[in-house]
Every structure is written in C-alpha cells, then in structure tokens.
C-alpha cells in the first residue's frame, strides 16, 4: 500500500505567504502610525502657550528637577553678578574670629 506523501515544499510555500503577509501588515501599521495626525494638537498647544505665556512643558511632573530647569541658576553666577553687594570673606578672618571671645576682641597674651 502506498504511503501518503508529506511534501514539505508545499508547506514551505504557505510559510512564505505567511511571512509576506506578516511583513506587509507590519509595514502598513508603521505607515499608518507615521502619518502626522498630531499637527492640529501641536497647533492648539502652540496657541495655548502664546495665550498663557507658558514656557515649561508639563511632560515632567511638577516638583521634579527637570520640570522648571530654566529657573535654576548656579549660585556661582549670582556671586559674580556686578549688581550684588560684595561679601568680604577670607580664611584668615575665619580663623581669627574663631579665636575671639564673646566680646569680639582678639585675645592677647600680653
């Protein structure tokens, strides 16, 4: 009795069709998602920004460091601002003042 043939070549043909279908479907989804459908949303956002004078994106929650990053200024710049009064400070003064008694005079051995 003749056995039923099991032709893998036929099966391979179906497999190739399945691969093609999956690839084409994935490409269609990518194309659909690539279409710029958000232009209106960005325009509305820009109008809101202009009207309310907003500067900070709210994609980071309030209270996080990056949320209001433009408000943070390194202290070194403030110290070097010509508008600010100069703070007189020297290590020598620090040492001497630590030796001062409560009255503020320098203790003398004489």
């Amino acid at each position: 009795m003749m056995q039923v043939t099991y032709d893998r070549l036929d099966k391979a043909g179906y497999g190739l069709w399945a691969i093609t279908l999956v690839t084409v479907l994935a490409c269609v989804v990518i194309t659909l998602l690539s279409l710029d459908t958000c232009r209106d949303a960005r325009q509305i956002t820009q109008r809101a920004i202009q009207t309310l004078a907003l500067t900070t994106p709210t994609i980071i929650p309030s209270g996080r460091a990056l949320r209001n990053a433009d408000t943070v200024k390194p202290a070194i710049d403030l110290r070097h601002s010509p508008h600010l009064p100069l703070i007189h400070f020297s290590p020598e003064d620090l040492v001497i003042s630590s030796l001062k008694p409560e009255t503020g005079d320098i203790r003398s051995n004489d």
Binding site: T45, A48, L52, L54, T58
Partner: peptide, 11 residues
Amino acid sequence: PEQTSMFTHDL
C-alpha cells in the same frame, strides 16, 4: 483640552 496636554497637563 487634552490636545494641549504637553504644556497644560498638571496646570
């Protein structure tokens, strides 16, 4: 509006 969420989400 939800569309302005990138600048007004928690405002």
